[in-house]
Computed example of a mutant assay.
Amino acid sequence: MQRIVLGRVKPTLSLPQALDKIRAGTRAVVVGDGHGSRVVTAGDIFEAMNEALDAGKDPKSVEIGEVKPTLPRVAVEAPPVTTTDRFGPPGSRPSLTFPEEDRFRSLLMAKDGGKEPRYLVEEIGPEGAVIVTSSEAFAGHLAKSLTICKCAGEPVHRFEPDQVRVPGVCNRPHGRPVTCSQAGIV
C-alpha cells in the first residue's frame, strides 16, 4: 500500500484558496471532511479556474466543492478501524491494521483490475488526510512537486505541464505563449 499526505480543505473554500492549501511536494488536496472526501488535483482546479475566467467570472467566486475531480474514488467500503492504532494512542487517528491492509489491497485490485488508480481517504485531522492506494504510479503522481504553467496575456490561464497540449502554447483560443515554473517560485 502506498500512502501520501495531502492538505485537506472544506468544500466552501474558493479555488485560489484551495490551490494555496496544496502541500509542498504534492499536487492535490482532499476536499471534504468525512465519508464523501475526494482528491482534487491542481489540474482539476486550474481547469475550473480557466472555465470561470473564460465565462467572465472571478475564480474566487467558485467553490472547490463545485469542481468535478478527474480521479476515480474507490467504490468499496473502507476496512473497519480498530481501537488500537499503530501510529499513536487509540482514537488519535484512524489507521488500517496489517491484515486489513491486505484485505483492502485485494479489494482495490479486484475492483479495478490494477488498471485505474483507486484510493481511500484515511482522515488524520482538519488540515490533512492520508490517501491510501495500491498504485505506485498514482502515488508517485500525487507526490510530485507542483509545476504551474501560465499563459501571457489576459486572461491568464493556468495549467499543469501535462495539460498543455502544444508545448509553450496556451490551450485556450488566444494561443498565447506559456511559461512553466515550480509552485512558490516567481
Rank of each mutant, 00 (worst) to 15 (best):
M1F: 10
R3T: 14
I4V: 15
I4C: 09
L6Y: 00
G7E: 01
G7R: 04
K10D: 15
P11R: 08
L13D: 05
S14C: 09
S14L: 01
S14I: 06
L15N: 01
L15P: 00
P16T: 08
L19D: 08
D20V: 02
D20K: 01
D20M: 05
A24F: 09
T26I: 03
R27I: 05
G32V: 03
H35F: 11
H35V: 11
G36I: 10
S37A: 15
R38G: 07
V39G: 03
V40E: 03
T41A: 07
D44V: 02
F46L: 07
E47F: 12
M49L: 09
M49D: 04
N50Q: 10
N50R: 08
E51H: 07
A52S: 02
A52E: 00
L53F: 00
D54R: 05
A55Y: 04
A55L: 13
G56R: 07
G56Y: 04
K57T: 03
K60P: 00
S61I: 07
V62Y: 00
I64T: 07
G65F: 05
V67W: 00
K68D: 12
K68P: 03
P72V: 04
R73F: 08
V74C: 13
V74K: 02
A75M: 11
P79Y: 10
P80I: 11
T82Y: 06
T82K: 13
T83W: 13
T84Y: 10
R86D: 13
F87A: 13
P89V: 13
P89E: 14
S92Y: 06
S92C: 03
F98Y: 12
F98N: 14
P99Q: 08
E101A: 04
D102I: 15
R103M: 13
L108E: 06
L108P: 00
A110C: 01
D112K: 07
G113E: 02
K115E: 14
K115C: 02
E116F: 05
E116K: 11
E116C: 06
L120W: 07
L120Y: 11
E122L: 15
E122C: 12
E122V: 15
I124H: 07
G125Y: 05
P126S: 14
P126G: 12
P126Q: 12
A129M: 02
V130T: 11
I131L: 06
T133Q: 07
S134K: 08
E136F: 12
A137K: 11
A137L: 12
A139W: 05
H141V: 12
L142E: 00
K144R: 15
K144L: 14
S145V: 03
S145A: 12
S145C: 06
L146H: 00
I148R: 00
C149M: 09
K150W: 07
C151K: 01
A152Y: 11
G153T: 08
P155D: 09
V156R: 02
V156Y: 01
H157D: 10
F159A: 05
F159Q: 04
Q163K: 06
R165I: 13
V166C: 07
V166L: 13
P167V: 05
P167A: 09
P167G: 09
V169N: 04
C170K: 04
C170I: 06
N171M: 09
R172N: 10
R172A: 15
R172E: 15
P173L: 09
P173A: 14
G175W: 07
P177K: 10
P177I: 11
V178E: 00
V178G: 02
V178Q: 01
T179M: 10
T179S: 15
Q182I: 09
A183R: 15
G184E: 02
V186N: 15
